[in-house]
Design a protein around this nucleic acid. Structure first.
Lengths: 327, 327
DNA sequence: ATCAATCAAGAATACGTATTCATGGCCGAA
DNA sequence: TTCGGCCATGAATACGTATTCTTGATTGAT
């Protein structure tokens, strides 16, 4: 493993000159720079990351804490984050938002192994973790937000999205409204519900709250809604995974969709467009969300002292076969 | 950020003693050790990762190169890898197997930012990358294998799996056999096909080869199989994602499954068990595969000079609603 | 022609840890 | 009591880089 000293020796210059020449520092003769670059190429020299980190106290690593939940939106965000960070010359270290893994993330922060952290699935529950980390490193939240954390946060407009679904139902003349949702700790869910309820002008919907955001829970919850005496003719599911379960529960029960009941999800994951489901849903602009989140993090890393930002990007209703087009 | 010197000062000992006391080195008085630990706790001291890495030339990071393909098996493996590595006290840096990202992985290897690398989606195509990395670091392949790479490799028995499907079809009296597969660069696909063909005793199956392993490609490919004059009565899909597309193509064409055509996939991803698909498939023991891969990597990191291993774990046929149970 | 100023490059240093080398004290044996 | 040896601890050092501090030379102006 060649060091900058080896390069220096081969190029007939000092180690400091090698460092300057390779990092594009001004005040290096063009001829010397060329000699150094040639020597570096010959020796396959690459600066040692640990030494550079120690000297600059910048590791080039960004930590990403993501949910292990069986929602394909998280892998998708992870991939986009990886791409965006790489374009900025940064690496991505990944942790799940289990308690144990979150501890590992905090350790990495304390050790200086990462320069910043992005949460895709933050909740109030990990406030201690947040405070631990935030006093050393910039933190950015994307997707889920947390009211009490004074950091940059990027989300889509979940409130407006929920509201749009309610409006859509009402304008279509749907009267018996159902809400199939899950636990309330994610901000996304709370906001979608709030927007939806706000738009339910004829009173609160029939609500079933599952214990998890899984296909199975969605199916089971939809079963309960369909078993009601006054069965709903339109159901809003708080995310697509629940909605897919709900769609299959209807299929299994022989209930026609959209004939007897409309179904709307949230996220527009890939499966929503599949023939078997063909799910009407609200699309989240996750690519844009991720890009903004990385941009904000880079700003913080550059030391900008701008006030904390809370970005809220618009989603869009995507009408498919589990509802009927208006007009 | 407290350093070991700060701890030393507070505990009234030298920096070396702090290092020894905290790393459980013998030859430190119990009383001194307690004093050091107390001081470290008071100052929230955590050893600096970069310094430790420079000194020990061990970063505690493992690189994972994974596919971005829209196959949920990869996120699943990623999560399992993360858990398994964390249990070993290691962090996980993730790259996609795009060309650009693979370059980033090679850089990290050269810079000493990772101690080892795990590929989940290796192909012959990245042989240059492999050789670049393998001469510095231990490399382990999981899921996909590559014949010419002299490193530890872990896969499931794709050949036997493919064979099992063919046997199943034959014993059920299926005669008009179809194969819906994709590109041949992944070893998994090649082996599944080879095993399957070996079991097609009545001659080669009607074969459709898609250009990608996506839902859409699967649907389109199944459309072509169903359009054949001598339409197959049993189709083996080289993975579940293709099979889900195929299932939906049949649904759309009004072809009964399993009434008119049987369908079998490979992987047993979560969606395979969903009501909408209820897909018969071969389950891969990915949890075990991941565990073995990490175990092998840890052995290499420990410096063991055992001969390269190639593990091949058995899969299992999971019969669901796209076929009928025998007997 | 002389001196100040500019500039390229070398020397020295610090980052924080783990480890080797050095040292002083204590214990046991003769 | 004295000396050898062991042991706990302190001192010193190396890891490889980026950067500050020095130095020697060259240029330009008077």
């Amino acid at each position: 493993m060649a060091t900058s000293r080896d390069v220096a020796q081969r190029a007939g210059v000092s180690q400091s000159t090698v460092s300057r020449a390779l990092s594009g520092h001004p005040g290096v003769t063009e001829e010397v720079r060329r000699r150094v670059q040639a020597a570096a190429r010959d020796l396959l020299y690459v600066p040692n990351a640990a030494a550079r980190t120690m000297r600059t106290s910048r590791s080039g690593n960004i930590g990403v804490v993501t949910a292990r939940l069986h929602n394909p939106i998280y892998p998708e965000m992870l991939q986009l984050l990886g791409r965006e960070l790489r374009l900025a010359g940064l690496r991505m270290i990944v942790w799940n938002s289990d308690e144990t893994d979150e501890g590992a993330a905090a350790d990495a922060a304390r050790q200086g192994m990462v320069d910043g952290i992005i949460f895709t699935s933050a909740t109030q529950a990990s406030t201690a973790l947040y405070e631990e980390i935030a006093q050393r490193l910039p933190v950015v939240l994307v997707n889920r937000t947390v009211e009490g954390w004074p950091c940059d946060q990027v989300a889509s407009d979940n409130h407006a999205g929920g509201r749009a679904v309610a409006d859509y139902f009402r304008q279509a003349g749907r009267r018996r409204i159902g809400l199939l949702s899950g636990p309330l700790w994610p901000s996304t869910i709370r906001e979608r519900e709030a927007g939806f309820l706000e738009g339910c002008l004829d009173g609160p919907p029939m609500t079933v709250r599952t214990e998890a955001f899984t296909y199975t829970a969605g199916a089971e919850g939809m079963g309960r809604l369909l078993a009601l005496a006054d069965r709903p003719d339109a159901v809003f599911c708080a995310n697509d995974v629940l909605a897919l379960g709900a769609r299959d529960a209807a299929r299994l029960a022989g209930v026609a969709v959209p004939g007897e009941v409309w179904l709307v999800g949230y996220d527009d994951i890939a499966m929503a467009s599949w023939t078997a489901f063909d799910l009407t849903t609200i699309r989240q602009p996750i690519e844009e969300m991720v890009r903004e989140a990385v941009r904000l993090l880079l700003q913080r890393l550059a030391g900008e002292e701008a006030p904390r930002q809370r970005l809220c990007l618009p989603g869009a209703l995507v009408v498919r076969g589990t509802t009927e087009r208006l007009g």
